[in-house]
Amino acid sequence: MDILLIILGMAVVTHIPRILPPAFMRSIQLPSWFASWLQCIPYAALAALIFPGILSVQPDEPAIGLAGGATAIILAIFKAHILIIMILSILVTWLGSCWLV
């Protein structure tokens, strides 16, 4: 019973911030500075999600996450398909952890 209450509570507090903006933003005219600020958010958010989290892909071995990240950056610069980028980064990380551990 307690668990159901927890799941329900988590669902409510997680979904409210997700669904409110599309429901209400259009009733308000956004100032232009705010619209251009919003355009910068994806770059800032992804950067913040990537770093420093990527260092803890393998706990206590930041070099492994860095190697995987470097692989992804190089492949992305050379316009590799996103699935190729993911697969090769997983491979490099996996080889790295086999080699180190």
Binding site: I50, V57, P59, G68, A72, A76, T93
Partner: peptide
């Protein structure tokens, strides 16, 4: 249990071309 390298690689694969 943490986020795997796969999702970080996906984020990089989205961010790098967008920045370029």
């Amino acid at each position: 249990s943490g986020m795997s390298i796969a999702l970080y690689a996906m984020f990089i694969g989205l961010l790098v071309p967008a920045v370029r």
